[in-house]
């Protein structure tokens, strides 16, 4: 960050049109999150591969067809996809330098994320009751690891966005907070995209065959 940019950050001069890309720090952050998303994609690809290799090994436990209930999972999917949309609206609000709008839409995003997590936990409890456990079979281990890893990403995402909302509430939209918000929303989209793949590969394909 050159000194001119820094002064800009410290005095509250009006923000430039794309505040998240105005500083070198901001640009580095955005590039960094894209790289992180690349690495995470590989991580999830490995977990998907493991799941596909082991999904037949249910060892007398319930099979995917018996287990999965599409309506509930579809509802969860819808919730998460909507939260992606609301986070976009939050970023739009950020570009309009509208703190209220940012807080509103990111707040809704967090709530939807929490609702999704709640559904997932409920789903897990049901499965365990049906005899589909983490330690019961290789299928169980692979299933809970894949979905659980995604769930922990959701949890991390809502915590992160909540923290950023607190910072925005305290300091407003600055050259420091805007890249953070932008980056968190990118991460959030990634988490959603992973879910779309989980929905297709795990649930729909599990139902079909």
């Amino acid at each position: 960050m050159s000194s001119a940019e820094l002064n800009h950050a410290q005095t509250s001069a009006p923000l430039p049109p794309h505040p998240e890309k105005a500083t070198l720090e901001g640009r580095n952050k955005i590039l960094g999150i894209w790289l992180l998303i690349g690495a995470e994609t590989v991580l999830f690809a490995c977990l998907f591969g493991t799941y596909l290799a082991l999904k037949g090994s249910n060892m007398n436990g319930p099979t995917t067809e018996e287990l999965f209930q599409i309506p509930m999972v579809a509802a969860a999917t819808l919730i998460l996809l909507t939260s992606s949309l609301t986070s976009v609206l939050g970023v739009v609000g950020m570009h309009q330098k509208n703190v209220k709008k940012v807080m509103l839409w990111f707040g809704i995003t967090v709530l939807l994320g929490a609702a999704f997590l709640g559904l997932e936990i409920y789903e897990f409890i049901e499965y365990v009751h049906e005899g589909h456990t983490f330690t019961g079979s290789a299928f169980g281990s692979a299933f809970y690891t894949l979905i659980g890893t995604h769930g922990s990403h959701v949890l991390f995402g809502i915590t992160w966005i909540t923290c950023l909302m607190i910072q925005v509430a305290r300091r407003g939209l600055t050259l420091e907070t805007t890249p953070k918000l932008f980056v968190a929303s990118l991460y959030w989209h990634f988490v959603d995209v992973v879910w779309v793949f989980i929905f297709t590969v795990v649930y729909l394909m599990g139902k079909v065959g």
């Binding site: 290799a53 983490f134 330690t135 079979s137 290789a138 692979a142």
Partner: peptide, 17 residues
């Protein structure tokens, strides 16, 4: 650590993974 079965052949695991 947590008793998963990824590599336990008897419970459907696969060491080649």
């Amino acid at each position: 650590l947590f008793g998963a079965q990824f590599f336990e052949v008897a419970l459907g695991g696969n060491p080649v993974i």
